[in-house]
């Protein structure tokens, strides 16, 4: 399955990328599993996407849970807690 990844604010800066397309292995089906899959890249990916790290996730531009299912062509975003207003 191919999905689009988006990164914002401190997460974008730490990873050095704002957006990329990625091919997921068959066993990766949820937003939480995408996070885990990306952690396996190691280095800064393991650090920034670590469990317990304050991180928000969205799928198709709606706030997502780790259990939210991903689908072909969807947009999955990772970002820090928001600080607008």
């Amino acid at each position: 399955m191919n999905i689009q990844l988006r990164f914002f604010a401190s997460v974008r800066e730490a990873l050095g990328t704002a957006q990329e397309g990625v091919d997921l292995p068959e066993h990766v089906r949820t937003v939480g599993e995408v996070r885990e899959f990306l952690r396996q890249r190691g280095d800064v990916w393991a650090e920034v996407l670590a469990e317990g790290r304050a991180l928000r996730m969205a799928c198709n531009q709606q706030m997502a849970n780790p259990g939210t299912l991903v689908s072909e062509g969807c947009e999955v975003a990772f970002f820090p807690p928001v600080t607008g207003g």
Partner: peptide, 14 residues
């Protein structure tokens, strides 16, 4: 609306 925006709308300040 303000309380909700502060925690749910995707804005970030640097």
């Amino acid at each position: 609306i303000m309380d909700y925006l502060k925690t749910q709308a995707p804005f970030w300040k640097k």
